[in-house]
């Protein structure tokens, strides 16, 4: 059981805080000789597997590292293009690590505002009177829980489908936000949260929630 990440979205749909607390890694490393028996393609500034699923390497996985050195988007650590590097027989044998592409901060911003719109559409398409937006979204690998405050700020927590006690965690995060972001005289409303105390207390709350699954009655 685990809590994967936390997002805080302001009332305009902008991401003002994001924390990845735990990321299960499904990575596969393999040594290849020339020619590469996988088809790679460039997508969103990353090199993805387009064809040739095998040995834990799946279509959609990105090239994460070459010979143990992390790649930087579509470039290797020393600034060469990954596809060009892998097209040169002189560089083989080569060991490549594949895995799910990590989200860049731009993508996180985009996904946060995307959720903001989905939340609104979810309430518009309601077959019942007076519905809120999406409060819980379920998939086979994670559950997304969202709590919108009266002032329009959304707290979003991504957790394992079996993790309990997320509702009280969301209230707890709201409390931490009020105590350590809002009451901080240097914090300006609707802007990214850069407060050390907020960070510390949030991490503490996530730890407690992961272990106990709940904060008990009282809080």
């Amino acid at each position: 059981m685990a809590i994967f990440s936390v997002y805080v979205v302001n009332k305009a749909g902008g991401l003002i805080y994001q924390l990845d607390s735990y990321a299960p890694r499904a990575e596969a490393e393999k040594t290849f000789s020339y020619p590469l028996d996988l088809l790679l393609k460039l997508h969103d500034e990353r090199v993805l597997v387009a064809f040739g699923q095998r040995d834990g390497i799946r279509v959609g996985h990105a090239v994460l590292a070459i010979n143990g050195v992390d790649v930087n988007g579509k470039y290797t650590a020393d600034g060469k293009e990954v596809l060009e590097y892998l097209g040169n027989p002189a560089n083989y044998p080569v060991s490549i690590r594949f895995g799910r592409p990590r989200l860049t901060s731009n993508e996180k911003l985009m996904l946060a505002s995307m959720f903001h719109s989905l939340f609104a559409i979810g309430s518009q398409l309601s077959p019942e009177q007076g519905s809120s937006g999406i409060e819980m979204l379920e998939t086979d690998t994670f559950k997304l829980h969202c709590f919108q405050t009266l002032t329009g700020i959304k707290f979003v927590v991504l957790a394992d489908p079996r993790q309990a006690g997320i509702d009280s965690l969301l209230r707890k995060i709201y409390e931490i936000y009020s105590d350590f972001a809002l009451k901080n005289p240097f914090y300006s409303l609707e802007m990214p949260i850069r407060c050390e105390l907020f960070d510390q207390n949030l991490k503490l709350a996530l730890e407690v929630a992961e272990k106990a699954g709940t904060f008990g009655p009282g809080s």
Binding site: E128, S131, G133, I134, L137, T139
Partner: peptide, 11 residues
């Protein structure tokens, strides 16, 4: 399977 369900306060 991907996306399975979502819920709001009413449905």
């Amino acid at each position: 399977d991907g996306f399975l369900a979502f819920q709001t306060s009413r449905y």
